[in-house]
């Protein structure tokens, strides 16, 4: 766990990610394109050393990659399921909602892991991260299930957390 402290590893990872984005964007592999991209990526990587990117704090182990793939599969499935649920709520004439903000706790320690967790929770409709304070997350739900911390954590966080724990810790 590196709390706000950057390492050479982070900078290299940020540079590689930026370079990858540049290559996807330009779609060419000419020498001049490569040089411009490398210079720009290097400057940004040095300026934003504390910034987060996809693979910051990623554990480069085979298990982490497997967990990564399974995480995206799980995430897409959840995304569809909850979107259909949300569409059903919006289309029903009586608008059956019981909103509320619940408090949950995460086991994740890394910055990137927590960021991914909050983003995943937000992207699945029906749950929305309103505030994060350390290991505590405040989540707005369109239909509140459990209201105490343990039960709400099991309901909302656990599914994503088990994958993210292997990926980022």
């Amino acid at each position: 766990m590196s709390k706000g402290k950057s390492t050479v590893r982070d900078t290299v990872i940020l540079f590689a990610t930026l370079m990858l984005f540049w290559l996807m964007l330009s779609g060419k592999l000419d020498t001049d394109v490569l040089i411009v991209g490398a210079v720009a990526s290097l400057i940004i990587a040095l300026l934003y050393r504390d910034g987060l990117s996809f693979f910051t704090e990623f554990r480069f182990t085979p298990q982490a990659f497997v967990a990564g793939f399974r995480y995206y599969g799980y995430f897409l499935r959840e995304l569809f399921k909850s979107n259909l649920k949300m569409a059903a709520i919006v289309l029903s004439p009586s608008l059956p909602i019981t909103p509320g903000i619940v408090k949950v706790r995460t086991r994740l320690k890394s910055r990137m892991g927590r960021l991914m967790l909050a983003n995943s929770i937000t992207l699945t409709p029906g749950t929305l991260t309103v505030e994060m304070a350390g290991e505590w997350l405040y989540i707005h739900c369109v239909t509140v299930g459990a209201t105490d911390i343990e039960a709400a954590t099991a309901e909302i966080v656990s599914g994503f957390e088990s994958y993210l724990e292997v990926m980022y810790g």
């Binding site: 979107n83 949300m86 709520i89 608008l95 909602i97 992207l123 409709p125 029906g126 749950t127 369109v142």
Partner: peptide, 21 residues
């Protein structure tokens, strides 16, 4: 959903995420 939901939080829920998908 953005139009029908009763308060800001539910509008954010319905609006921004369903449109993302």
């Amino acid at each position: 959903g953005l139009l029908r939901m009763p308060d800001v939080f539910n509008r954010i829920q319905a609006g921004t995420k369903t449109t993302t998908l």
